[in-house]
């Protein structure tokens, strides 16, 4: 539902552009017939209302239209084979998912463990040190962290390559190695967020009277955490994870650019620079969809893990 409204917002935003797409595509020197032909081709002569629904319909069936750059290329070279936006995005989308997956695999367990530890030993030296470190890494721009990592892990001690030029048919190990630096950069940012939120959630929980009650029943600290705190902490922690994976989506753009990682974020930025509207539109919708989906997952999961809602009166 939200997604439909969002698609409408994106569509309106894009169509608020002055002038003519067709003109923009062909450049100043195009003949009137050519412009008209393109207009017809793109359906620009149709009313907005109609265009929105064709676009939306196309989205749903996987037809994302044709990129302007491709079209321009094709018309100049006189070629006939147009590569659709979908074909352009699909492999890059897989790459981005791979990067996000690697990041999540490192960040989630790391952040949750650190968060729980910081909450357990709150106000200790360990807690304060992690607090300062995470605050610093949250506040730093992604590209700063990226360059620091490049400096230490690629240039000074060549552990990982600084350019992530992955391509199809690459072995998993090699692909993982090349993805490592961008994934680590994202991990730094996401872990910090996740850890802080986990810590806050756990501290909140440990202050509740039923935890005090469990301690007053003479139950071992380990059991208090595992049996009494964890089932109730699940909802907030799942929520935190889903929210941060959603955050990953934004972070991915800058990081992909820094490491020249051929993902959807980089395609997006490139298209923004050359004003390739169909690609921008499609990427935007994909990002928004992923974002909304993750937020939705967070809501659903936290409802599912809440005992009050699982066992109604």
């Amino acid at each position: 539902m939200t997604l439909i409204v969002v698609s409408l917002v994106i569509f309106i935003a894009v169509n608020a552009l002055p002038g003519d797409f067709a003109q923009a595509v062909l450049g100043q020197g195009a003949t009137d017939e050519a412009v008209a032909a393109i207009r017809k081709d793109l359906g620009l002569d149709q009313p907005y209302f109609y265009r929105y629904f064709t676009w939306l319909g196309g989205m749903l069936t996987g037809d994302l239209g044709v990129s302007f750059a491709q079209m321009n290329f094709a018309s100049n070279m006189g070629g006939t084979q147009l590569k659709g936006v979908l074909e352009q995005i699909a492999p890059r989308f897989m790459n981005t998912m791979f990067l996000a997956g690697v990041t999540a695999a490192i960040a989630v367990p790391f952040a949750v463990i650190l968060g729980v530890l910081a909450a357990l030993y709150r106000n200790s030296v360990f807690d304060r040190a992690t607090n300062i470190t995470t605050l610093t890494s949250i506040s730093s721009p992604e590209f700063f962290l990226a360059y620091i990592l490049i400096l230490f892990l690629a240039v000074l001690n060549p552990v990982f390559p600084s350019l992530s030029n992955i391509f199809e048919g690459m072995g998993f190990g090699e692909r993982l190695e090349k993805t490592m630096l961008p994934a680590l950069t994202l991990t730094l940012v996401v872990t910090a967020h996740m850890m802080r939120m986990t810590r806050a959630a756990i501290i909140n929980l440990l202050a509740s009277p039923y935890i005090e009650m469990a301690r007053l029943k003479g139950i071992s600290p380990m059991r208090v955490i595992v049996v009494h705190a964890l089932p109730n902490a699940l909802a907030p922690i799942i929520n935190v994870i889903a929210l941060n994976l959603a955050y990953l989506i934004t972070g991915v753009v800058v990081v992909e650019v820094v490491f020249v990682y051929p993902g959807i974020g980089q395609l997006f930025v490139d298209s923004v620079k050359i004003r390739d509207i169909p690609v921008v539109q499609a990427c935007c919708l994909i990002f928004a969809a992923a974002y909304i989906l993750l937020n939705l997952t967070a809501d659903v999961l936290s409802i599912l893990s809440n005992p009050r809602l699982r066992h109604p009166k």
């Binding site: 509740s208 009277p209 039923y210 005090e212 009650m213 469990a214 049996v227 009494h228 089932p231 109730n232 005992p307 009050r308």
Partner: peptide, 10 residues
């Protein structure tokens, strides 16, 4: 407060 002192998950 018994309501707050019983663990809601068990």
């Amino acid at each position: 407060s018994a309501a707050a002192s019983f663990n809601p998950a068990h």
